[in-house]
Simulated scan of single mutants.
Amino acid sequence: MSFREDYLFWRLAHYFVSVGEYRIVQLSKDQKELWLEKIENKKYQVIRLLRYDIDWSNWMQRDIELTAANGEQIRRQLAKRNMNVLNLYVSTYLPVDDYEYRISKPFVNPNNSKTNVTTVIFDRNGYNDALGRLTELLQTDVSFTLKNEYEEQEIEAVKQATLAQIVIKAKSEQELFKYGKPFFTYIFIAIQVVMFLLLELNGGSVNISTLIHFGAKSNPLIIEGEWWRFFTPIVLHIGLLHLLMNTLALYYLGIAVEQIFGNFRFLFIYLFAGFAGSLASFVFSPSISAGASGAIFGCFGALLYFGVIYPRLFFRTMGMNILIIIGINLVFGFTVPGIDNAGHIGGLLGGFLATGIVHFPKKRKLLSQLFFLITAAIVTFVFLQIGYKS
């Protein structure tokens, strides 16, 4: 046996993983079907690679339809408006009957036009033509030479090299979520619980005079020089329900953000977001306010920044849930009276800007970080001028 087609299957897989930087979605138990994705690719977000000796074109047609159905499921999971799937067959021979009309154009499900499947067949006699077609579709040179015969050891070598690349990519992605151990999240939770008890022991957490005494945001007092009231509201809460909701949110979001960005980056993000929320409330709301909501929305902003830098990982893991929760909270804030939505939006933007300033651990984007720093400084200055003058 020549094993030429088996080698070609894994050689293509290795190219897409190492050069194309596609990520594995699924590998079948017999290791003859491989699904890959790269949602930021403008041409083909998903590649399906199948090692199978095709006999009749009607089997291929049914398989293309199933491929389109699977591609549609991936499209929905990744929240993509449209999905282009590149379907590659590695077969010893071409179908024995007429097949060209089945793959001359991308297949589109008549019941759903959002997922398209473009098919290319690699066969023993037309492998160079197939590579040329692949180069044309991807608009990048895809070329390598094949021998007439291969040993099993050669196939195993390229397979292991491909799987090793997949493992390395998976580990690097996992490391993004495990850089730091939560510390300041627990500190802030403890502080806001202690401050709540102090409020309750000194007149009650819903008592306006008590809240002002302990540092709630009060526009007149800030104008008189009590600038610390941009920060002290972060650890004060109005009522037990307010405390419980924000503590629960901080527990889940704070841990996630602190694990991704590390302790001191999280500390900066959280405090700056809390300040930004208080500043926005200072400008747009005359009411007394307190709570960690602005800082917590800053954690959402940090995760949105993560999504900007790592979009496919973001949407594959938490993206849609984060966007939905943000949307629900903002709609809730606009429709329910008594909620300081200016503080929420200010915290969200502040958290995004703060994360852009510190970026990721052990990674630098100096020009981008400088841009975020200048933007944050300008926005802060303008809002302070507006707030104090009004």
Score class of each variant (00 low, 15 high):
residue 114 K to N: 11
residue 365 K to C: 04
residue 186 Y to R: 08
residue 178 K to G: 03
residue 272 F to G: 02
residue 47 I to M: 02
residue 316 R to V: 05
residue 291 G to V: 13
residue 387 G to K: 09
residue 347 G to P: 05
residue 138 L to M: 10
residue 179 Y to V: 11
residue 115 T to G: 05
residue 311 P to C: 02
residue 212 I to L: 11
residue 361 P to G: 03
residue 203 G to T: 03
residue 61 Q to R: 15
residue 351 G to C: 01
residue 222 I to H: 05
residue 77 Q to F: 00
residue 108 V to I: 14
residue 236 L to H: 06
residue 191 I to L: 14
residue 327 G to C: 15
residue 213 H to I: 08
residue 227 W to E: 05
residue 176 L to I: 06
residue 116 N to C: 05
residue 137 L to H: 07
residue 132 G to K: 14
residue 226 E to R: 05
residue 84 N to L: 04
residue 219 N to G: 03
residue 128 N to C: 01
residue 109 N to G: 03
residue 332 F to D: 08
residue 227 W to V: 15
residue 138 L to H: 05
residue 65 E to S: 08
residue 268 F to N: 04
residue 50 L to W: 02
residue 35 W to P: 10
residue 381 F to N: 06
residue 205 S to K: 04
residue 351 G to M: 08
residue 333 G to R: 10
residue 33 E to L: 01
residue 225 G to D: 05
residue 228 W to P: 10
residue 375 T to L: 08
residue 214 F to A: 06
residue 33 E to Q: 10
residue 154 E to A: 14
residue 56 W to R: 12
residue 313 L to S: 11
residue 275 F to N: 14
residue 12 L to Y: 00
residue 8 L to Y: 02
residue 293 S to V: 13
residue 338 G to A: 07
residue 180 G to S: 05
residue 25 V to S: 15
residue 249 A to M: 14
residue 60 M to W: 01
residue 6 D to L: 10
residue 157 A to C: 07
residue 98 D to Y: 12
residue 300 F to I: 07
residue 25 V to M: 10
residue 111 N to D: 12
residue 81 R to C: 10
residue 100 E to H: 13
residue 237 H to A: 13
residue 110 P to S: 08
residue 2 S to M: 05
residue 167 V to S: 09
residue 240 L to C: 02
residue 130 A to R: 06
residue 251 Y to L: 15
residue 127 Y to F: 12
residue 254 G to S: 13
residue 353 L to Q: 02
residue 199 L to D: 01
residue 389 K to Q: 15
residue 260 I to Q: 03
residue 64 I to M: 10
residue 309 I to V: 15
residue 196 F to Y: 14
residue 266 F to R: 00
residue 160 Q to W: 07
residue 389 K to I: 08
residue 259 Q to C: 08
residue 79 A to P: 01
residue 300 F to A: 04
residue 74 I to S: 06
residue 251 Y to W: 10
residue 262 G to P: 06
residue 275 F to I: 08
residue 192 Q to S: 09
residue 157 A to Y: 11
residue 169 K to R: 13
residue 220 P to W: 06
residue 222 I to Y: 06
residue 287 S to L: 10
residue 52 Y to T: 11
residue 167 V to Q: 13
residue 251 Y to S: 13
residue 336 V to E: 10
residue 134 L to F: 02
residue 51 R to D: 03
residue 373 L to P: 03
residue 347 G to Y: 06
residue 295 A to I: 05
residue 208 I to S: 03
residue 123 D to I: 09
residue 298 G to Q: 06
residue 204 G to V: 07
residue 14 H to F: 04
residue 111 N to W: 04
residue 305 Y to C: 13
residue 352 F to H: 00
residue 252 Y to C: 03
residue 46 V to K: 01
residue 94 L to M: 00
residue 287 S to W: 11
residue 219 N to I: 15
residue 108 V to H: 05
residue 348 L to F: 10
residue 347 G to W: 07
residue 166 I to S: 02
residue 9 F to G: 04
residue 126 G to F: 09
residue 303 L to V: 07
residue 177 F to K: 09
residue 263 N to K: 02
residue 108 V to A: 14
